[in-house]
């Protein structure tokens, strides 16, 4: 167990967004957070990255209290891919090198450059190295941002809806990349998702959030028609097509 969340609460202006959220994520796991709009998914993710601080509850990373660590130490352990990013006039290599920031003291070392090269290689993006960020397509930009988070060498990688605004091919590529990263680097990957079919296909564990509370949490077995209907409020069937589980709204 690398990430454990216990009793986390959060409210915006006395309106509760998260209530007694508890779950645990293991190494090598792709953990998906699911729920309808406004269920508190993004808020939960921001708590996990200490962007916001929950007034109650504890978040432990490798048994260390997230809120007792200096910000820089958090950044060495937790990578975060936000929903929106701004594309400045920098090259892909520079953008990924920025992921080394929590490890850099004065300037990037040869090892930092080596890590960036390696990450770009793994993602098959070497030829993009010297392209400017503002010349990339949405899918390419998303991969660069994930490459940056991987260059950070985190033990927990958080992604907030990484496949929204991507076409079918890029959705699959991006999720394959993070799934492989979880396996090969033996890190925990936590993904907020909207697409239940993608979640069923790629995730190992599922957290169903409803109105800021945990509705269900576990492996494939929690993705029952009853649970999904309970969270999203419409009846669904979970079928298998070509031996792949799919969710069909009824």
């Amino acid at each position: 167990m690398i990430l454990s969340v216990d009793g986390v609460e959060f409210s915006y202006n006395s309106r509760p967004v998260l209530r007694d959220v508890r779950f645990a994520v293991n190494r090598g796991e792709l953990f998906s957070i699911l729920g309808n709009n406004g269920a508190g998914k993004s808020t939960l993710l921001r708590c996990l990255n200490r962007i916001i601080r929950p007034p109650a509850g504890s978040i432990l990373i490798e048994k260390k209290d997230l809120f007792a660590l200096p910000r820089r130490e958090v950044a060495r352990r937790v990578g975060y891919v936000a929903q929106r990013h701004e594309s400045a006039r920098v090259t892909v290599f520079d953008a990924v090198l920025l992921g080394r920031k929590p490890h850099i003291r004065w300037d990037a070392t040869a090892r930092d450059l080596e890590i960036v090269r390696e990450v770009l290689g793994v993602l098959g993006m070497e030829e993009f190295s010297l392209r400017y960020l503002d010349e990339l397509s949405g899918g390419e930009l998303q991969k660069v941002i994930i490459a940056r988070a991987l260059a950070q060498e985190p033990r927990v990688l958080l992604l907030d809806e990484p496949t929204s605004n991507l076409d079918l091919k890029n959705q699959f590529e991006v999720l394959q990349i993070v799934k492989r990263a979880a396996r090969e680097r033996n890190i925990a990957v936590v993904v907020v998702m909207h697409d239940l079919n993608l979640a069923l296909r790629f995730a190992d564990k599922f957290l169903l959030l409803k109105n800021g509370t945990v509705f269900a949490c576990g492996g494939r077995e929690v993705m029952t028609p009853e649970n999904i209907a309970g969270v999203y409020g419409i009846p669904v069937a979970v079928e298998r097509m070509a031996d792949i589980p799919v969710v069909v709204p009824l």
């Binding site: 921001r46 990255n49 200490r50 962007i51 910000r71 820089r72 130490e73 958090v74 950044a75 060495r76 937790v78 990578g79 975060y80 891919v81 936000a82 929106r84 990013h85 701004e86 400045a88 920098v90 520079d94 953008a95 920025l98 992921g99 920031k101 929590p102 941002i145 988070a149 950070q152």
Partner: peptide, 16 residues
């Protein structure tokens, strides 16, 4: 440089 990537990205990279 981190701030150029957006505020949340910067925070994620450990910038106060």
């Amino acid at each position: 440089n981190a701030l150029d990537g957006g505020e949340e990205t910067a925070k994620g990279l450990g910038v106060d």
